[in-house]
């Protein structure tokens, strides 16, 4: 009862949680031993060698120099080991699994907005299926925020000038905290929410709820609204490059450099077309800037649409892990074949 009121660990609800906790426990054991050792040694020396009438004068004794080498070499080796272990964990936190379910997030003062590929939108709530890697692509509309899931042991700053990607795979159904971890103004501590980890079937039911059409199809409407389709036609006759198959490919630029066409490339090309111009289309590019005209939410929809036009990198990105095959239908929407601008 009392213990329940006084937890020492947050829930372990993701595949990474135990890996981070193991490192933490090892460090507590190691550093705890060293710290307690130093404390006790000081205390012991302070009592044993306390100043008394027969101990007014310190002994003329200096410990052997080899001691010093010992406590330079041993900590250095230990540090190296911890560094390697911690980097191994960090790599796993950074590497997004290929078969992840894509979710988009927008942060703004002071709320979290999540968009699912199937078109569902939610604020300060995020519904995800259990046992399935979830990839969140996110940007901020104003200041820097940080999306933090303590139960999943992961967190990432959300920046106003580019997309960042984080992932987790929940292992336990339940409701867990979402916190903003980077101070962002008045209601920073109110920029919190819940992530609902659901059984795949329950998630299916939830997905069947209201939606305004898939994210990609909403993006397609925007593609027409902003008249992108007048230049980016689906044959080479347009004034802009054809976008079919661009996402995930490598693009040759006008200065003969080759860049990957990833999320941030698409984003930059919309907001600042002069920054990276495809070979044969400038410079200068004839495309106007859309900076300040397209909101972060709409940018994500446009991104989803461009992604849906085909990707050369991941042939079948949406096929779920075996245990959640029931979610395949929902996940397939990432690749929803609605093209023809």
């Amino acid at each position: 009862m009392l213990i329940a009121d006084f937890p020492l660990f947050p829930d372990q609800a993701s595949t990474m949680a135990s890996k981070v906790d193991n490192l933490y426990l090892f460090l507590i054991a190691l550093c705890g031993t060293v710290s307690v050792g130093v404390f006790l040694t000081i205390f012991y020396f302070a009592i044993k060698y306390r100043r008394r009438p027969d101990n007014e004068i310190a002994e003329d004794y200096e410990p052997p120099k080899i001691l010093e080498v010992t406590w330079i070499v041993i900590p250095s080796i230990l540090f190296l080991g911890i560094f390697v272990w911690a980097s191994w964990v960090y790599f796993q936190l950074a590497r997004v699994p290929d078969n992840s379910l894509q979710i988009y997030a927008t942060a703004k003062q002071w709320m979290w907005k999540f968009q699912h590929p199937t078109g569902q939108r939610e604020i300060n709530e995020l519904h995800v299926p259990v046992n399935r890697p979830i990839k969140i692509t996110m940007a901020s509309e104003d200041v820097i925020h940080s999306l933090y899931f303590p139960a999943f042991r992961t967190k990432m700053d959300v920046l106003p000038n580019r997309y960042r990607t984080m992932w987790f795979q929940a292992t336990k159904t339940g409701r867990y905290h979402i916190f903003c971890a980077e101070y962002c103004g008045t209601l920073h501590s109110g920029m919190v929410g819940w992530v609902d980890v659901m059984e795949p079937t329950a998630y299916q039911t939830w997905l069947a709820g209201g939606s305004e059409g898939s994210l990609a199809s909403q993006g397609e409407k925007l593609f027409q609204k902003y008249a992108c389709n007048t230049c980016h036609t689906n044959d080479a006759s347009g004034r802009g490059p054809v976008l079919i198959g661009v996402y995930g490919s490598s693009v040759m630029l006008s200065d003969n450099t080759i860049v990957p066409a990833d999320d941030n490339y698409i984003r930059e090309s919309i907001l600042n077309p002069q920054a990276k111009i495809v070979k044969g289309f400038g410079p200068p590019s004839v495309m106007p800037t859309f900076q300040g005209q397209v909101s972060e939410d709409d940018l994500l929809k446009l991104l989803a649409f461009v992604k849906s036009l085909g990707s050369t990198r991941t042939a079948a990105p949406a096929v779920a892990s075996p245990q959640s095959s029931t979610t395949t239908a929902a996940a397939q929407t990432t690749k929803e074949p609605k093209k023809k601008p």
Partner: peptide, 12 residues
């Protein structure tokens, strides 16, 4: 300084 652990505890 332990990268993988810092992700969880930084800004807390």
């Amino acid at each position: 300084a332990s990268l993988g652990l810092d992700v969880h505890v930084t800004d807390t």
